[in-house]
Nucleic acid binder design. Structure first.
Length: 415
DNA sequence: GTTCTAGAAC
DNA sequence: GTTCTAGAAC
C-alpha cells in the first residue's frame, strides 16, 4: 500500500527537515499529536522495530542523539518530551517518536491516538534498548493485547484524571498546558527581575520589596513551592469514582474554573510592614474610599433608609439641570440647598399640617384598621399620591368612605 | 498514517 | 437531535 511509504517520501522533503546526519534524519510529524512532535528515521532501509537486534544499538544511539539535537534546535526543554517507538507501527521505515507530553493538538482526534502514546503500546527508547541488549529482538504484540490496550480508558498523563470522552480529556490537557504556560511566564518575569536587580547591583535586602525570594522569613516559600504546599494541604483521600466526578465537571464549568494557577490576582502579602509584590493586587480599603467619597470611581454611597417620619427626599431626584441654584453643579459641596428640595419641603409641611387635621378625624377608624395591617408603611403615600389625593379631597368630604383605597386608609404617620 | 461514512450510542 | 466508533478506502 502506497500510503504506508509516506514517511519514506516525506523524510527527504526540506520543509519537514529539522536536523540530519549520515545515519539518520529528524523531521516534523506531518500530523503532530502535541505542541512538538518529531520523527527520527534512519537513512538505512530498516522497515520496523521488529527487525532490530543488538547490532543496531549504535544506530539507535545515533537516532537518540538526533532527537536531542532536534529538540535543542527548537529551543524546547528536553524534560517535556517522551521518546520512543510505537509497538504497533502503521508506516514503513523505523521511526522514533519525539513528542512533547502536553498532547495539545488538533490532530489528536481518536482514542487510538492517545492510547498508542500513553499505554504499553508506546515503547520508550530506554526500554527497547535494554530489551535488545537482553533478548536481541523485539517481538510483535499479540493482536488481543493490542486490542486490549487500545480499548483502555482515557487517563491523563499528568494527573489521575480519567475521562469518558476524548473531548473532555483534550479540555483537561489544555488546562494543564495553560497552567504550565502561566508558571513559565511567571518564572521568566522573576528571572528578569532578578537579572535586572543583579545588573543594578542593588542590595539584596531590597529583594522582598519585589518578591519573596531572598526573604529572611524561613517560612516564606517561593510562589511555586507555596502552590504545591497548598495543593498538598487540600488533597483529599477520594475514591476513583469521586475523583472522576470531581475532575469531570460540565464543559462550561471547566472553562470557568481552570486548574489552580499561582497567577491569580490576590491581595499583597506582607513581610513585616513591607508589602511583598506577588502578582496583581487591589487598592487597600477600596470599599471605604467609595463610601467616604461617593463620587469617586463612579460609585454612589448607600441610600438613606428612613424608618420614622416622612422621607427626607420624597420621590425627587436632585440631579440634572435646574436641580441646584444657578452656578452649582450636582455633587458639589455647597451650603445652599437645591431649588426643588425647598419646594418639596414646603409641600411636605403643608401635607403634614393637613395630615394632623385628618388624624383628629380618623383616629377611631385607625384603631380598627391597624389590627388588619401587615406592613405599617404600606399605607404611606408618596408626594405624587399626596398631590393626587389633595385634588380629590377638594371635591370629596374627608370622612365619607369611598371605593378609593387611598381615601379609605388613614394618612397618619406610622407608629 | 488520514479521511470518510454508516450505524450505534447517547 | 448530536456524538462516538469501527471499518473501509486510500
Amino acid at each position: 500500500m502506497d500510503w504506508q511509504n509516506g514517511l519514506i517520501r516525506d523524510m527527504v522533503k526540506p520543509e519537514y527537515l529539522i536536523v540530519s546526519s549520515e545515519l539518520g534524519v529528524a523531521i516534523a510529524d506531518k500530523f503532530p499529536k502535541a505542541m512538538h512532535h518529531y520523527l527520527v528515521l534512519p537513512t538505512a532501509d530498516i522497515p520496523s522495530i521488529f527487525v532490530l537486534n543488538r547490532s543496531h544499538l549504535p544506530l539507535l544511539g545515533e537516532l537518540y542523539r538526533l532527537a536531542r539535537n532536534a529538540v535543542e534546535k527548537k529551543g524546547v526543554p528536553w524534560e517535556d518530551f517522551q521518546v520512543g517507538f510505537h509497538a504497533e507501527p502503521s508506516l514503513h521505515r523505523l521511526h522514533l517518536h519525539v513528542i512533547s507530553t502536553d498532547f495539545v493538538s488538533p490532530s489528536l482526534k481518536t482514542k487510538k491516538h492517545w492510547n498508542c502514546h500513553n499505554t504499553e503500546l508506546f515503547v520508550p527508547y530506554e526500554k527497547l534498548y535494554k530489551q535488545l541488549e537482553k533478548d536481541n529482538c523485539f517481538s510483535r504484540f499479540p493482536k488481543s493485547l493490542v486490542k486490549e490496550l487500545l480499548a483502555k480508558p482515557l487517563v491523563c498523563n499528568q494527573c489521575e484524571f480519567a475521562s469518558d470522552s476524548l473531548l473532555n480529556l483534550k479540555t483537561h490537557l489544555l488546562n494543564h498546558w495553560q497552567c504550565k504556560e502561566d508558571e513559565r511566564k511567571e518564572s521568566t518575569k522573576l528571572d528578569n527581575i532578578t537579572k535586572m536587580m543583579n545588573e543594578a547591583k542593588l542590595d539584596t535586602k531590597m529583594m522582598p520589596l519585589c518578591h519573596n525570594q531572598g526573604s529572611k522569613n524561613p517560612f516564606q516559600l517561593p510562589p511555586k513551592q507555596q502552590a504545591v504546599k497548598e495543593c498538598a494541604n487540600h488533597k483529599l483521600d477520594l475514591s476513583t469514582t469521586e475523583m472522576i466526578q470531581r475532575n469531570n465537571p460540565p464543559f462550561n464549568f471547566q472553562a470557568m474554573n481552570p486548574l489552580k494557577s499561582n497567577n491569580a490576582p490576590r491581595y499583597p502579602q506582607h513581610h513585616g510592614s513591607r508589602p511583598i509584590w506577588n502578582g496583581p493586587s487591589f487598592p487597600p480599603f477600596q470599599h471605604q474610599i467609595n463610601y467616604r467619597y461617593p463620587m469617586l470611581n463612579g460609585f454612589r454611597g448607600p441610600s438613606n433608609i428612613i424608618q420614622h417620619g416622612f422621607p427626607h427626599y420624597p420621590n425627587q431626584t436632585f440631579v440634572g439641570p435646574g436641580a441646584w441654584p444657578s452656578g452649582q453643579q450636582s455633587g458639589v459641596r455647597s451650603k445652599s440647598i437645591p431649588r426643588n428640595y425647598q419646594q418639596n419641603q414646603n409641600q411636605q409641611n403643608a401635607q403634614q399640617n393637613s395630615n394632623l387635621q385628618h388624624l383628629t378625624h380618623n383616629v377611631n377608624r385607625n384603631q380598627v384598621n391597624r389590627s388588619n395591617r401587615q406592613n405599617p408603611n404600606q399605607n404611606r403615600q408618596n408626594s405624587f399620591q399626596q398631590n393626587k389625593n389633595q385634588n380629590k379631597k377638594a371635591t370629596k368630604p374627608i370622612n365619607q368612605p369611598s371605593g378609593n383605597l387611598h381615601d379609605q386608609e388613614a394618612t397618619a404617620p406610622p407608629p
